[in-house]
Structure formats: C-alpha cells, structure tokens
C-alpha cells in the first residue's frame, strides 16, 4: 500500500516539476496546482494511513489516546486546500493580467525586464 502511495506522490511531484519548467505560463499555473496536490498527498500519507477511523474523539473516553487517523496533518491539509484555492485563483487572474499586459504567455519573453 505504502509503495503505491509513494509512487503516486513521486509521480505527482514529477508532473508538477515538469509543468513548472515549461515556458507557457498556463502550464506554470497548472504546475503550481499539481505541486499542492503532491504536497497535500505527501502530508496526508506522512500522517499514516488509517482506514475507517476518522479523527473523532469519544466524549466518554476521557483523556485517553484513541486510535484514530492522525488529525494534525488533516488540519494542515484542510487549510492548505482552501488557501490553495486562493493561490490558484490569484495566480490564474495574475496570468490573465499578464497576458493582457504583455500579449504573450511565453515566460522567456519576460527574461529581460529592463527592455520591456
């Protein structure tokens, strides 16, 4: 199981890096999206995979350690997801503005800012 997950994580990272290294700014944004996919999955995986025991406390159990999935990574990912949406939305609007201002979606045309 963990092997499959590791492969998926590695795969997602590879795809994200490949996309980030493209010249098209649209692919750059997709790369950012994939980077957050990969990182979220990594965090989730690092918390340990537990089937069918969501992180809920038993009100009757008192102060005992209950065997549940790890809540901390989940909390981290939950905020990361929403923030990720904010970042994705912002970067999408940014490339939209970028295109409107420069008339290109090629990043290499940005490489000499002094001349523009």
């Amino acid at each position: 199981m963990s092997l499959l997950m590791a492969i998926l994580i590695g795969f997602l990272y590879a795809v994200s890096i490949y996309l980030l290294l493209r010249r098209s700014i649209v692919k750059l944004v997709l790369g950012i999206l994939f980077l957050s996919y990969a990182t979220n999955l990594m965090l989730f995986f690092a918390g340990g995979l537990t089937e069918t025991s969501p992180a809920f406390a038993d009100p009757n159990a008192g102060a005992e350690i209950i065997q549940t999935s790890d809540p901390l990574p989940q909390a981290l990912i939950l905020t990361a997801l929403v923030i990720g949406f904010g970042v994705a939305a912002f970067s999408m609007v940014l490339i939209y503005r970028f295109y409107k201002e420069t008339g290109t979606v090629d990043l290499d045309e940005l490489s000499e800012p002094e001349k523009s």
């Binding site: 590695g10 795969f11 990272y13 890096i17 990594m42």
Partner: peptide
Amino acid sequence: FGFVMGFLAL
C-alpha cells in the same frame, strides 16, 4: 525530483 520525493515519502 519525483523519485527523491517518493523515496522520502516511503
């Protein structure tokens, strides 16, 4: 990079 990250995950 993906390979390294996958390995790290393992």
